Simulated assay, not measured.
Amino acid sequence: MKLAQALGANALADKDPLPPHLREQLLARDPLFVASHWLLAGAAMVGVIVALATVRPWGARVPRRLLLAITGTLGVFMIARSIGVLGFGFVGDVLLLTGVRPPPVEHASLARDLARWDLLLWSPFFLLWGVCWATAGWRLGRASRVAPVRRCESSTR
């Protein structure tokens, strides 16, 4: 999505949980936001490579501790974001939508709309993503503790 937005698409750009002044900059394609989308698209591509390194044979050349640190950190970060530890997430959205935590007066309607989108789309997405990263790290850690299996090469006849 960030790559599409960096290239000019507005896919879900109006649903990003941002304060109104930042949303306006995002929708106006402010150079800072375009640059940040290119950086995030690049980070996603690096993430794909890291994810593949946890399951592909060529990933054995990457230090396991580094891969474990990256997958664990990303898993914790994504799950914390989905729960609401980082401001947005299930807890914060429910508190806002039930009125326990009042939205900012200057943009209450927008805050409720974004909380609904976050509750139904972004938070579940980050939870799933975080669980996938944590699972990849867990499997990698388990595989690292098991001695590698040596294959017997069959000779040609």
Score class of each variant (00 low, 15 high):
Leu3Arg: 07
Ala4Met: 10
Ala4Glu: 07
Ala4Gln: 09
Gln5Asp: 11
Gln5Met: 15
Ala6Gln: 07
Gly8Tyr: 04
Gly8Ile: 04
Asn10Val: 03
Asn10Ile: 02
Asn10Cys: 02
Ala11Phe: 13
Ala13Tyr: 04
Asp14Glu: 10
Lys15Tyr: 12
Asp16Ile: 11
Pro17Arg: 07
Leu18Tyr: 07
Pro19Cys: 05
Leu22Arg: 15
Arg23His: 15
Arg23Cys: 12
Glu24Lys: 14
Leu26Gly: 01
Leu27Gly: 08
Leu27Arg: 09
Asp30Gly: 08
Pro31Thr: 12
Leu32Trp: 12
Leu32Gly: 09
Val34Thr: 13
Val34Phe: 11
Val34Ala: 06
Ala35His: 11
Ala35Met: 14
Ser36Thr: 13
Ser36His: 05
Leu40Val: 15
Leu40Cys: 11
Leu40Met: 15
Ala41Cys: 10
Ala41Ser: 14
Ala44Tyr: 15
Ala44Glu: 14
Ala44Gly: 15
Met45Gln: 10
Val46Lys: 08
Val46Gln: 09
Ile49Trp: 15
Val50Ser: 12
Ala51Leu: 15
Ala51Ser: 14
Leu52Lys: 07
Leu52Gly: 14
Ala53Ile: 11
Thr54Glu: 09
Val55Gly: 11
Val55Asn: 09
Val55Ala: 10
Arg56Asp: 15
Trp58Gln: 11
Val62Asp: 13
Val62Leu: 15
Val62Tyr: 13
Val62His: 12
Pro63Lys: 12
Arg64Ile: 14
Arg65Trp: 15
Val76Asp: 06
Met78Lys: 04
Ile79Leu: 09
Ile79Arg: 02
Ile79Pro: 03
Ile83Leu: 14
Ile83Asn: 01
Gly84Trp: 10
Gly84Lys: 08
Leu86Phe: 11
Leu86Gln: 06
Phe88Tyr: 08
Gly89Lys: 02
Phe90Leu: 07
Val91Leu: 13
Val91Gln: 07
Gly92Cys: 05
Gly92Ser: 12
Val94Arg: 04
Leu96His: 04
Leu96Thr: 13
Leu97Arg: 02
Gly99Cys: 10
Gly99Leu: 10
Arg101Pro: 02
Pro102Cys: 04
Pro103His: 04
Pro104Gln: 09
Pro104Val: 09
His107Trp: 13
Ala108Val: 07
Ser109Tyr: 10
Leu110Ile: 07
Ala111Asn: 05
Ala111Asp: 08
Ala111Ser: 13
Arg112Asn: 12
Arg112Cys: 10
Asp113Cys: 02
Leu114Thr: 03
Leu114Ile: 06
Ala115Tyr: 05
Asp118Leu: 03
Asp118His: 06
Leu120Lys: 00
Leu120Cys: 01
Leu121Ser: 03
Leu121Gln: 02
Leu121Cys: 06
Leu121Ile: 11
Ser123Cys: 02
Phe125Glu: 04
Phe125Cys: 06
Leu127Cys: 03
Leu127Arg: 00
Leu127Ile: 01
Leu127Ser: 01
Leu128Thr: 02
Gly130Pro: 01
Gly130His: 01
Gly130Arg: 01
Val131Gly: 00
Val131Asp: 00
Val131Leu: 11
Cys132Lys: 00
Trp133Arg: 00
Trp133Met: 01
Trp133Thr: 00
Thr135Ser: 02
Gly137Asn: 01
Trp138Ser: 00
Arg139His: 05
Arg139Cys: 02
Leu140Lys: 00
Leu140Ser: 00
Ala143Glu: 03
Ala143Gln: 03
Ser144Ile: 01
Arg145Thr: 05
Val146Ile: 12
Pro148Ile: 05
Pro148Tyr: 03
Val149His: 04
Arg151Glu: 12
Cys152Leu: 12
Cys152Lys: 08
Ser154Glu: 15
Ser155Gln: 13
Thr156His: 14
Thr156Val: 15
Thr156Met: 12
